[in-house]
């Protein structure tokens, strides 16, 4: 069987298919308290960038998950409305490489609020104007989250690729010009990105670019995919067990209140879509049960109290 490390894609080697999980005495299990947030992997794992910290290694050729069609999204929206989903999030890959993305948003905004996680490169003035019109015409919020990974071009471009710093900020400026106010999303890929001085630098940068009400969200990195290659995988001890269960339960974890739809079915969360064990079923109704927290990324969510929500 062909198994290749990401770094040496051309060199085949023999071995088991996929990483072997460490044995865990008894994994903690998280139940679905309520399905509040539904995610769609609308861009699949296809992206116009190849960021070196991407936990699902998205790239222009990564077809692990394919682009979602409007028709597929509509069928899950029907199911979601029946289950009382509160809000919808769209990610990829890059959502705006999906040619049906704006139709998907129009349909979604009829039933609930929508947030799009984008790298900002496709936020040209015309698209931003259409999105702003959509936002103004809806009783629900349409929000954008734009990723940037350094407050200098040098720091950002080292992660997201040459020249992206200026292109991202141009996209943000186009959005602001149209009347949108994206949440700038930063990962702790550089040590000071999430510190108080680091936050201040990001806020200053946005203010220098004329953004008067800067919104900022900081996220930790997940040592998966490209990021594992960049900075190393998890340590053996970075893993949860039933003994870690808190008195108040696991409601701080987003898997207690969300699911992720890709072209291959419904997954427990946006992080584990490149782990086959993260798949919970074909339809939302298949995925209302609990899930074992035995992936090392679960440790990150718990320890850093991560929520991919805004």
């Amino acid at each position: 069987m062909l198994v290749v490390s990401r770094a040496t894609a051309a060199e085949a080697e023999t071995g088991p298919s996929g990483p072997t999980p460490l044995p865990v005495a008894e994994p903690a299990r998280v139940s679905l308290t309520s399905l509040d947030t539904l995610w769609f992997q609308v861009g699949g794992t296809l992206c116009n960038l190849t960021c070196s910290h991407c936990f699902i290694s998205c790239s222009p050729t990564n077809r692990t998950h394919e682009i979602l069609s409007l028709e597929t999204v509509l069928s899950y929206l029907d199911e979601a409305v029946n289950l009382g989903v509160k809000e919808y999030y769209f990610t990829g890959g890059e959502p705006f490489i999906n040619r049906e993305m704006e139709d998907i948003l129009t349909a979604t905004l009829k039933v609930g609020p929508a947030t799009v996680l984008t790298n900002g490169l496709l936020l040209d003035p015309a698209r931003c104007q259409r999105l702003a019109d959509m936002a103004k015409g809806s009783e629900y919020s349409l929000d954008l989250r734009v990723s940037i990974d350094g407050y200098t071009a040098e720091a950002n471009d080292a992660i997201r690729g040459e020249g992206t710093f200026e292109r991202i900020l141009t996209g943000v400026a186009n959005a602001v010009e149209a009347g949108l106010n994206p949440v700038i999303t930063v990962t702790e890929v550089h040590a000071d990105n999430g510190t108080d001085p680091g936050r201040r630098r990001f806020l200053e940068l946005l203010s220098e670019r004329g953004i008067v009400r800067p919104r900022l969200k900081i996220l930790p990195v997940f040592r998966l995919g490209a990021e594992a290659e960049r900075s190393g995988t998890y340590e053996d001890w970075q893993r949860l067990s039933a003994a870690d269960t808190l008195e108040e339960g696991w409601e701080h974890l987003q898997c207690s209140s969300s699911r992720m739809v890709t072209d291959q079915g419904v997954w427990v969360c946006p992080i584990l879509v490149n782990e086959p064990a993260g798949r919970m079923g074909a339809r939302l109704a298949d995925t209302l049960g609990d899930f074992p927290l035995d992936h090392q990324a679960c440790w990150t969510c718990h320890v850093y109290e991560v929520s991919c929500r805004t």
Partner: peptide, 10 residues
């Protein structure tokens, strides 16, 4: 190829 965790597999 697909990404499985931090590896590539068919």
């Amino acid at each position: 190829l697909a990404t499985w965790g931090d590896r590539l597999v068919p």
